[in-house]
C-alpha cells in the first residue's frame, strides 16, 4: 500500500472517478476491464452479458433437436457447425462477463436456478425441420438487429465479443434463408412446413426485442451508459422493415393482417403484439421453459464428476512436478 497518497476523502475520490468514467463514455471511448466503474454499471453489464451468454447456450437446444434427423448430410454439417458456433458464442460472452468479476459457475448457477433469464424465443418448440431455417432467418435476423449496435457497446470486451458473434450470426442467417428458399422450391409438403414454421415463429421473433419502450424501465439508464444504443421499438421496427421484403421474395405470408406499408412514416405498420404471452413465457409458462432448464441443469450436474476429475488430475500433476523438482 502506498504511503505517499494524501488523504483524499472517500466521497471525493469516488466523485472524481465517476466524473472520469462519465468522461470516457461521453467521448465514446471504451471502458476496459481494470477501469473503475460505478457498481450499478458493473452489475447491469454483468447481468446483460450473462443473459446474452445464457441465451446462446440455451439457444443450442431448439436447433440441436434436429441435428441427428437433418435430412441431408450437408444440412446436418451446417446445423452441427451452427450449434457449435453458439457454444463458442456463449464462451466468448461468459469470458467477457468474467472481466467484470462475473464467475462462470456462479452465472450457470443463476441460470439453472432461474435467477437469470435467457431469450424467451428459445422456450418455443422446434416442430419440423423447417424450423431450423426459420430460426436462422427470423430469430438470427432479429438477434442481428439487436446485436449489431452492441458491437459499439461502451464495454470493450463485450463490444469485441459482439463483433465476432455478429459476423457468425449473419452467416447463420444466410444459411437459414437459403434452406427456406430450397424448401420453397421443393414439394408442397415442404412449402407447408415452411409456412407453418413462419406462422409459429413470427410473433415470438417480434417479442425478442423486449417490451415496448413505454414499459421498459431499464432502457433510459442503459442508453445513457451506451450499453444500449437503440430502443426496443426502434429495433423492432427496423426488423419488420427488413423482413417483409424477404418474406415476399421467399413466397411466405407473415401471419399479421395488420401488416402494411405506411408511406407517411416510411415504415411498415404491424399489428398488436400479445404482451401477455411474452410475460407468460418470461415468467416460466412458455411451452418449453421447463425442458430447456432441465436439460441445461442435467448437463451441468452430470458433468460435475468430469470437471472434478480434471481438476484433481491437474492438482496431482502439479504435486508430482513439485516432488520431482
Amino acid at each position: 500500500m502506498s504511503v505517499t497518497e494524501p488523504a483524499l476523502s472517500e466521497a471525493d475520490s469516488e466523485r472524481r472517478l465517476e466524473r472520469h468514467f462519465e468522461d470516457v463514455i461521453a467521448k465514446d471511448q471504451r471502458i476496459e476491464p481494470r477501469d473503475w466503474v460505478p457498481e450499478a454499471y458493473r452489475k447491469t453489464m454483468i447481468r446483460q452479458i450473462a443473459q446474452h451468454a445464457h441465451s446462446e447456450i440455451i439457444g443450442m437446444q431448439p436447433e440441436g433437436n434436429w441435428i441427428t434427423r437433418a435430412p441431408s448430410l450437408r444440412r446436418k454439417a451446417i446445423l452441427l457447425a451452427k450449434v457449435q458456433d453458439e457454444a463458442g458464442h456463449g464462451l466468448y460472452l461468459y469470458s467477457a462477463a468474467e472481466t467484470l468479476g462475473g464467475d462462470r459457475d456462479d452465472m450457470t448457477e443463476k441460470l439453472i436456478s432461474g435467477r437469470q433469464k435467457y431469450s424467451s424465443i428459445f422456450n418455443y418448440p422446434t416442430l419440423s425441420f423447417a424450423d431450423v431455417g426459420v430460426i436462422g432467418w427470423l430469430v438470427d435476423g432479429a438477434a442481428i438487429c439487436n446485436q449489431v449496435p452492441l458491437c459499439r457497446s461502451s464495454y470493450g470486451p463485450y463490444a469485441r465479443a459482439m463483433i465476432r458473434i455478429c459476423k457468425e450470426e449473419s452467416f447463420h442467417q444466410r444459411q437459414g434463408y437459403e434452406l427456406l428458399m430450397t424448401m420453397m422450391s421443393g414439394t408442397d409438403a415442404q412449402r407447408e412446413m415452411v409456412q407453418d414454421a413462419v406462422n409459429r415463429y413470427w410473433w415470438p421473433s417480434l417479442m425478442m426485442f423486449g417490451p415496448p419502450d413505454d414499459d421498459s424501465p431499464n432502457t433510459a439508464q442503459s442508453m445513457a451508459w451506451k450499453i444500449k444504443r437503440h430502443t426496443n421499438d426502434e429495433l423492432r421496427q427496423r426488423f419488420v422493415d427488413m423482413t417483409v421484403p424477404q418474406a415476399e421474395a421467399l413466397g411466405v405470408t407473415l401471419p399479421d393482417p395488420g401488416l402494411s406499408w405506411n408511406a407517411d412514416r416510411g415504415h411498415y405498420d404491424f399489428g398488436a403484439i400479445d404482451w401477455d404471452e411474452l410475460k407468460q413465457v418470461i415468467s416460466g409458462g412458455g411451452p418449453c421453459n421447463t425442458e430447456r432448464m432441465e436439460r441445461r441443469r442435467a448437463a451441468h450436474e452430470d458433468g460435475a464428476w468430469v470437471r472434478e476429475a480434471a481438476a484433481a488430475h491437474a492438482r496431482k500433476q502439479q504435486q508430482r512436478k513439485e516432488v520431482a523438482a
Partner: peptide, 27 residues
Amino acid sequence: ASSPDEKDPFFAPSGDKVYRHPTFYDI
C-alpha cells in the same frame, strides 16, 4: 498488469482486484 488509466490522476483504487483480469488489445 497495470491499469489502463495508470498514468491518469484518477488511477482506480480498486485496480488490483483480482477479478479485473486484463484484456489487452483490440483484435
